[in-house]
Design a protein around this nucleic acid. Structure first.
Length: 492
RNA sequence: CGGGAUGUGGCGCAGUUGGCUAGCGCACUUGGUUUGGGACCAAGGGGUCCUCCGUUCGAGUCGGAGUAUCCCGACCA
């Protein structure tokens, strides 16, 4: 345990990997590109799930579950969709093993070849729309608002814990509507749900916007997204919401009888966020001492560390801690008392800081005598002496303060690293410094592609809030006219 | 899939021009002393040195092939 997290400035990705492992969130598995999420990491993910799930329910959605396997023919029904995912699909070709006739273990039984190969879902649009065909007959069946919590597989070349793994956990919403307008509204509604969740729960100041054509989801008419900025100045796409038009309805022949009795194709949306949010959370807030968790996501919100000499002091302090824990629990604050006897306080302090626990309370014999505790905040690394009387209420309030402070700090960082750039020379210089660059763009794929080739920067989004800057200007690359600034950045 | 690097107890590493019983730090176990910012002492347990083939009296060390992981590209939520 003794080794600290490495320095952020020196090597950001090493710092990140180190932190994920040391804070006990996840580790690489024996399977290439796949990750084991450890209990502490999973507890944070569960908190995200709970919050999101209740937000989905509030907006009228229901959960369901669809198969892991997708027949190959389904995937190829929508041309752009299959093209987008073809290069990263895991394929099941056989359904049985047998003993190797040469006596060396087991081999695939050639006789068990599947008639049609199965794709391990990289996303579920196809299997879901194939199913919806049977569910939707009339305008009375609409809207159909369904979400699924699932795992998906995308065989990526290079993987990173949480940010890009071959298998990941996510939720994917798939809705069907009678009109384009209603589907577009759903797309917007859900990206707003994500933005609210990111801001209020993850303490992540995200920008909402549209993807450019080049960055759009394979098979979508329009993709909305939330984009966040990490502490190294790179952008991270934290969630997407797609207006799919009638593309999938046509590919899977999903029609409904409208009020006039005429058949129409339905309008679709899909939207998702993944365990990548864990990566966003870690990279946006943590420091060289370890993780910094917003109180709303911390599996342990308060850790209590006793400081004592001998059993008598130990018992007295632990008893007092139990009482304080009950008071805090009554106000909904999650408390852990670290009563391990084989470790010294200093070690415990460092360890809980590494794990990002928002508040630490230490009680020693002196504090017990004076009726106070030593309270340390993870976000500011400050310590203060607080009376035991009324401690629970104080800590309860502090949870909100810390939540807001973490958000404010991230927002300040983002704003300090966001700037307008008006010339190509300046752009090439500024992009090296990281951050968001607000620039005029002529709206063409070609220009975006050239800029990407020359600088590795992509259009993160065409913002619809936070930075809506509608003004006439000229494209930084082509010099052609532009009506609005877009966000350029290097991204994960 | 291109370019580079690395595989030695759980983790991090050392191991010289081939040489005898493969070592160190951390972690782990037991006992004791400790405990207000990462404790100390003592005694222990744990290794087919990535795999296969080759060279050699002798290979962790040299050669070849394979394989895995990491980093940089291309691809991506």
């Amino acid at each position: 345990m003794a080794k600290e997290v490495t320095n952020r400035e020196e090597n950001y990705s090493q710092w990140y990997n180190n932190l994920v492992v040391k804070a006990d969130l996840a580790e690489n598995s024996a399977v290439r590109g796949c990750m084991v999420i450890k209990p502490y990491g999973y507890a944070i993910w569960e908190k995200m799930q709970d919050k999101l799930d209740s937000m989905f329910k509030e907006t009228g959605h229901q959960n369901a579950y669809f198969p892991l396997f997708i027949p190959k023919s389904f995937l190829s029904r929508e041309a752009e969709h299959v093209e987008g995912f073809a290069k990263e699909c895991a394929v099941v070709t056989h359904h049985r093993l047998m003993n190797d006739p040469n006596g060396s273990g087991v081999v695939v039984d050639p006789a068990a070849k599947l008639e049609e190969e199965l794709i391990v879902r990289p996303t579920s649009e196809t299997i879901i729309w194939n199913t919806y065909k049977g569910w939707i007959k009339s305008w009375r069946d609409l809207p159909l608002l369904i979400n699924q919590w699932a795992n998906v597989v995308r065989w990526e070349m290079r993987t990173r814990l949480f940010l890009r793994t071959a298998e990941f956990l996510w939720q994917e919403g798939h809705t069907a509507h009678a009109t384009a307008q209603e589907a577009i509204e759903e797309t917007q509604k859900m990206v707003e749900v994500y933005a609210k969740f990111a801001r209020e729960t993850l303490a992540l100041p995200v920008v909402v916007g549209h993807k450019s054509e080049a960055e759009r989801f394979a098979g979508a008419v329009d993709t909305l997204c939330i984009e966040a900025m990490m502490q190294d100045g790179k952008a991270l796409q934290a969630g997407t919401s797609h207006f799919l038009g009638q593309n999938f309805a046509k590919a899977f022949d999903v029609q409904f009888a409208n009020k006039e009795g005429k058949l129409e194709y339905v309008w679709a949306t899909s939207w998702g966020v993944s365990t990548r949010l864990m990566g966003a959370l870690i990279m946006a807030h943590s420091d060289d001492n370890g993780l910094i968790l917003p109180p709303k996501l911390a599996p342990i919100q308060v850790v209590m560390v006793p400081i004592y000499k001998g059993d008598e002091q130990r018992d007295a302090i632990l008893n007092r801690m139990d009482e304080l824990k009950k008071e805090l629990a009554a106000l909904g604050v999650t408390v852990k008392i670290d009563d391990r006897d084989n470790l010294r306080p200093g070690f415990k302090f460092a360890e809980w800081e590494l794990k990002g626990v928002p508040v630490r309370i230490a009680i020693g014999p002196r504090d017990l005598e004076n009726g106070v505790v030593e309270l340390a905040r993870r976000d500011t690394l400050t310590k203060e002496s607080v009376a035991q009387e009324g401690l629970a209420e104080y800590v309860k309030g502090l949870m909100d303060t810390i939540q807001e402070n973490i958000y404010a700090k991230a927002l300040k960082f983002r704003d300090e690293n966001t700037r307008k750039v008006d010339s190509w020379e300046e752009f090439k210089e500024e992009i090296e410094k990281g951050g968001f660059l607000l620039c005029h763009w002529d709206g063409t794929k070609e220009t975006e592609e050239r800029i990407k080739e020359e600088t590795k920067a992509t259009i993160r989004c065409i913002p619809t809030d936070s930075f809506v800057i509608e003004e006439e200007g000229t494209c930084i690359y082509s010099g052609k006219p532009s009506k609005q600034r877009v966000i350029f950045a290097r991204a994960y």
